[in-house]
Design a protein around this nucleic acid. Structure first.
Lengths: 202, 202
DNA sequence: TAAATATTTTTAACATTGTTCATTGTTTAT
DNA sequence: ATAAACAATGAACAATGTTAAAAATATTTA
């Protein structure tokens, strides 16, 4: 049972959160500032400070929401598949797709939030755990089916997490590879490469 | 033959460049701003604009210098070794060591510079090519010795570049793994893992 | 209902940082 | 010695995050 006050406060926070999320998805991180977000929400910039400690807190909430959204997207893309290496690939593919669709979110996750001293530790940990969570289920399945040993699975997990972060980091800066088609091709090859390890029984 | 004017101008630029580099290595990227750098150089902040287009140009020069420094460090660490997979490992180890010794430089390379719209493309490309250059020699040797095929070498190169970037990205944010000892252990394991691929003849 | 009180929103102001420009001081060439 | 060129600087502006007092609005109470 929530009071009117709580409900109203939640709505107000929602306006700002939505405005920030829209801006992040659309114009990207550099367009997010107190004044533009507040304008989009339909309030003065100072009003934000009545509902959030500071801009960091607001953006932190966006990160949490985007994590959920990305996980939901991966779930949705793979709900027909059974756990295992094929689904693992599909889930990573979904994650890559999500971040390339919203470069601003990638920037937020891997460049800005992690870089931020203030909210450093908790945010970075969240992002880090999220990347692992995306693939944990399938790795467990691969272990229990004897497809891979537990230590090899651990290495695979780290390699995938780091490799995907690096892959997106370079692509996000419009470099390598140049176009999207070539990028997905490289991503697929890299997945195949990382999954083609000696420890895995094919 | 350089004129006095050119010499003097070069010196002036050097004062600012050194001040910026010291600040980056010591206090990190967030401590770098026009006023602190100029103070360290012994001049007013406005003087900087007589020698550099803007702060970006100054920092861009630092990036170039750090790239050279890191390459020199890798060369120095491996000058006793012959080209091949062992030296490849050692060179990557040197690169990782360099960036963990100077977190501010990593931040600059992979988080800030790449993130910067203005100087985006050229800087990111430079950083990207530098990472490849560190290992190119040894990869070529491995190819010509028949240790690895050219296509596999290309995949290995990409995997290493992306994997190292991701590894440093997560470690730099003080997360995974917690302490330096554990970190180097993980880095070694990951190197072994990536180099232990099916395409490589052992 | 009207005054008093509490809450919410906003305007004004400040701090920090990057940047530009006019002024001032200094050097150089005639 | 003086005019021209050059170098260094402080004042000022713009953008952004933040705070605090003032204004507007809502709620409570007599």
């Amino acid at each position: 049972m929530v009071s009117n006050k709580e409900l109203q406060e939640k709505r107000m926070r929602g306006y700002f959160i939505d405005a920030a999320k829209e801006t992040l998805k659309g114009e990207g991180l550099k367009a997010v500032n107190v004044r533009t977000v507040a304008e989009r929400a339909g309030y003065s910039f100072a009003t934000m400070y009545n509902y959030f400690k500071d801009l960091n807190e607001l953006i932190f909430i966006c990160v949490k929401d985007f994590i959920s959204e990305c996980e939901a997207f991966a779930d949705e893309q793979t709900d027909q598949q059974t756990p295992g290496s094929m689904r693992l690939r599909a889930r990573i593919r979904a994650m890559i797709q999500y971040f390339t669709q919203y470069p601003g979110i990638f920037e937020l996750f891997y460049l800005e939030r992690m870089n931020n001293i203030g909210a450093r530790q908790p945010t970075a940990e969240m992002i880090y755990l999220f990347a692992d969570r995306i693939i944990q289920n399938d790795l467990d399945q691969m272990i229990s089916s004897g497809e891979i040993s537990a230590p090899d699975a651990e290495m695979l997990k780290i390699s995938l997490r780091n490799g995907v972060a690096g892959l997106l980091l370079f692509y996000n800066n419009r470099l390598q590879p140049g176009d999207y088609r070539k990028f997905t091709e490289t991503a697929e090859k890299q997945l195949t490469y990382l999954l083609g390890l000696p420890g895995i029984r094919h």
